[in-house]
Design a binder for these strands. Sequence first.
DNA 1: TCGATCACGC
DNA 2: CCCTGACGTGATCGAT
Length: 422
Amino acid sequence: MDALYSALEPKLRERGQWELFEEIELPLCRCLAEMELAGCRVDSKALSDFGGLLSRRAEELESDIYRLADGEFNINSPKQLGEVLFDRLGLSHGKKTKTGWSTNADVLEKLRGEHPVADAVLEYRQLTKLKSTYADGLLKALDPDGRVRTSFQMTVTATGRLSSTEPNLQNIPTRTDLGSEIRRMFVPEAGNVLVDADYSQIELRLLAHISGDEGMRAAFLSGGDFHAETASRVFGVERKDVTHEMRRRAKAVNFGIVYGISAFSLSQDIGTTQKEAKAYMDAYFATFPGVRAYMDRVVEQARTDGYVETLYHRRRDLPELSSSNFNLRSFGERVALNMPIQGTAADVMKLAMIAVWKRLKAELTQARLVLQVHDELIVECPAADAEKASTLLKEEMEGVAQLSVPLTADAHWGKNWLEAKG
DNA sequence: TCGATCACGC
DNA sequence: CCCTGACGTGATCGAT
């Protein structure tokens, strides 16, 4: 230990990362260890019943697909599926992969009007994914005491996020009604509840803070619906005249900006022409000029330094920026834009976890942190402590960093993870 | 065993 | 014009 400290401490200090180590990474270790040890209780009966339901429905779809395709084949093989769809049935193909025509969800959705088998395959894919990865996967990982225990990795991601393996509890379905049923099967011990608290728009708030863009800061300070506020400013209409479609498009632009999106991908996202998507991006940058200035600044700085860093000095090296390969260089630029935002969000969440963990130890000894999903924390506690735990989570998550825009978190509780999501 | 494809999360 | 959204994990296929 002494040898490691004497070798590594000066290196960290030189890079301005000693505080990152002492105040974030090191104290987080114990917190994560306790979370891993606590695990999450799963209703195994409900899970295995659900698995049975999925199997039966997948089997029905399987025979539908064989009938519609006029022959049997391995639906799980993209190669065989592609041959059936594009060679035998002659359906129109979209983009290519390295090995043939793509059969991904994007492509199948476009084929919906062309042949009923597309819809059947989409549904088949959803069911078999839920069955194999979640129903079977979680049952396989179940410990004898009825709890699943993930492993949180601190040294895997390039941005400072955690990752979760064996089982991955950071990608439990939420998007579809059928998929989110899996969350209903994450339950507390008898007499307990699950409390779920999540940051609202943390990455966009950090973009507003870090870029210092006045318009974007004002949109958050107004306390309203941020995507609708964005739409109002970008489309130049009164807040009350923002349509559902305008909000949807503004949301897609907000989302894409954080990742360094192109006009092409944005147009794919919102279903417009590339020209129209570019017009939205231009309007966005005209509305929030500080964001564009920040993006130019961060890429320029990254080219000079060879790395980017978060507010807490977590660093990512970017050798890609000096590549002669256009695609690789472009990738480096997108990473330079995204890492400081995503990474600072990860830093903030880690600080919040440490703060929550300390206060729970002092004030709610029966409560324990059980999961983290990037912008969301889940605590299991006695039902009688639900209100206190919710308040504690909200206070610590919101108070952990002082930004030039409000940092807000919402907390709910329930008798399972789905309910606790609120 | 491993790369490719696909699909789930944020 | 290049070619096209960050970060992850896991199941499955199929070539080796």
